[in-house]
């Protein structure tokens, strides 16, 4: 059976209970190809059931909710089913299963969690802020996973006191900080007025990027491996300024 849900944690936990004994369950919060032979169910959040499932999972594995949080952030299409299979396996095993990497359900979840965490790490490096006229910093990005709030936590500590916005243009949401607190909000398009010096700093950075390269040792494949092209869109050093 195909189970549709809204992508929230509580709805997931509700769906987990519904789909628990269905071995061919496919769970999705996006669009799924409907086939004639499969039935579909739309699962709504049931607070009481979700609480029950959460309590039980935490008894079995105290880190289970942080695993769930990470898995649901993934941008991969099968993330919901991967998470479903992992938690079903956990519930059936009755003890933490994180180390059972030879099990399909665990290996898939482990790989998915690893990719999300790796992207968070990458984006700590690849995010680029622009300085606005007001002094606030604005960083557009389009990561594979839904991680702007995680990124914001890192920059809140690092840029203590600076107001900033990290804008996920793909999901149309933003993590916003006034320099001391954090919140997330939907954000479609942002009107940004850059500070007077911003373009000059970007130009200086481009010059640095160009100079620090050693042209006689070109290894483009290696560069693209470490810094995939999909991350280039918001990097000043990879985009010439508009004339």
């Amino acid at each position: 059976m195909i189970y549709f849900y809204d992508g929230s944690k509580d709805a997931f936990l509700t769906a987990l209970l519904y789909a628990f004994s269905d071995d061919d369950a496919v769970l999705t919060s996006g669009r799924a190809q409907l086939s004639l032979s499969q039935k579909t169910v739309f699962v709504c959040t049931d607070k009481r059931r979700a609480e029950k499932a959460k309590k039980r999972l935490l008894e079995l594995d105290k880190d289970s909710m942080s695993d769930l949080d990470t898995l649901l952030r993934s941008g991969e299409e099968d993330r919901d089913t991967v998470a479903l299979n992992y938690f079903k396996f956990l519930a059936k095993a009755g003890k933490p299963v994180r180390g059972m990497l030879a099990e399909d359900a665990v290996a898939a979840a482990d790989a998915c969690i690893r990719r999300v965490n790796f992207e968070v790490h990458r984006m700590h490096g690849f995010l680029r802020f622009m300085e606005c006229e007001s002094g606030a910093l604005y960083a557009p990005c389009a990561p594979d996973a839904d991680i702007v709030d995680l990124l914001a936590r890192h920059f809140l500590v690092r840029l203590k006191g600076y107001p900033f916005v990290i804008h996920d243009t793909k999901r149309q949401k933003a993590a916003v900080s006034d320099g001391t607190k954090l919140f997330t909000a939907p954000l479609g398009q942002a009107e940004v007025v850059l500070s007077a010096d911003e373009e000059a700093w970007q130009a200086l950075w481009r010059e640095y990027y160009k100079t620090v390269n050693i042209p006689s040792r070109e290894r483009l494949k290696q560069m693209r491996g470490y810094m995939p092209v999909r991350y280039w869109k918001f990097l000043p050093e990879k985009n010439d300024p508009p004339n």
């Binding site: 700590h124 690849f126 690092r158 390269n213 040792r217 290894r219 494949k221 290696q222 560069m223």
Partner: peptide, 21 residues
Amino acid sequence: GIGNGYAAGCCHSFTPDGRCI
């Protein structure tokens, strides 16, 4: 002030010679 350490290290960009910045 501004800034903190990143114990694992963090690369911010990569140049065409394959080295990190």
